[in-house]
């Protein structure tokens, strides 16, 4: 994902699919194509208890991007500054080589423009200091966007402080 990362907190995800819909609405994507996708397992019984889990799958923006390497028209490019992989719509000829090359079939077909469309992690929004639309729309904050180092820092701070708090309360130092 270039210099960024989107994480899913499965505990907070309520499988409402607002992330998917917001992505379509903001990018004017027609029915049939889904750029960012939330995959949900369950609800189902696990040892007699109802459980569920989910993971958000936008484009991975691979460092060795199959789609980019497959495009003969250089319509798929990588941003120098942060490594995001995006499509230059005017150069796309609609051959779908990128769709076939991507192991996860992440590039999508837009039947209205008759071109391929893919997640660009909302580059324009990122440049304005905003989060990608899917992350911003999530009603429960289950999706988190950021630079991997900062996300790691935050997660460890939270975990560590919680642990220390418990230790202090238990009289341990």
């Amino acid at each position: 994902m270039g210099d960024y990362c989107i994480t899913t907190d499965s505990k907070k995800c309520i499988a409402c699919h607002a992330c998917e819909v917001q992505c379509k609405a903001v990018h004017n994507i027609p029915v049939g194509a889904t750029l960012g996708k939330i995959v949900v397992l369950g609800p189902k019984f696990v040892n007699g208890v109802p459980k569920m889990s989910s993971v958000f799958l936008p484009c991975f923006h691979c460092e060795e991007a199959w789609c980019l390497n497959a495009c003969r028209k250089n319509a798929i490019q990588r941003r120098d500054k942060d490594g995001l992989v995006y499509i230059k719509e005017e150069s796309c000829v609609g051959c779908k080589a990128c769709i076939k090359a991507c192991p996860w079939r992440i590039p999508q077909w837009n039947p209205e423009t008759r071109k391929v469309v893919k997640c660009d992690m909302c580059m324009e929004r990122i440049d304005q200091g905003k989060e990608p639309a899917c992350v911003a729309a999530c009603p429960t904050g289950a999706l988190e966007f950021g630079e991997p180092g900062k996300l790691s820092d935050k997660a460890r701070e939270e975990y560590g402080l919680n642990l220390l708090e418990k230790n202090l309360a238990a009289g341990l130092e």
Partner: peptide, 26 residues
Amino acid sequence: VVSIEGSPYVPAMKGGICPKGAAATA
């Protein structure tokens, strides 16, 4: 309409929106 998000002035919205709200432009 370019985008619809939860009001930043109401903390419990967390800036978010439900799928129906997101589909309002549709």
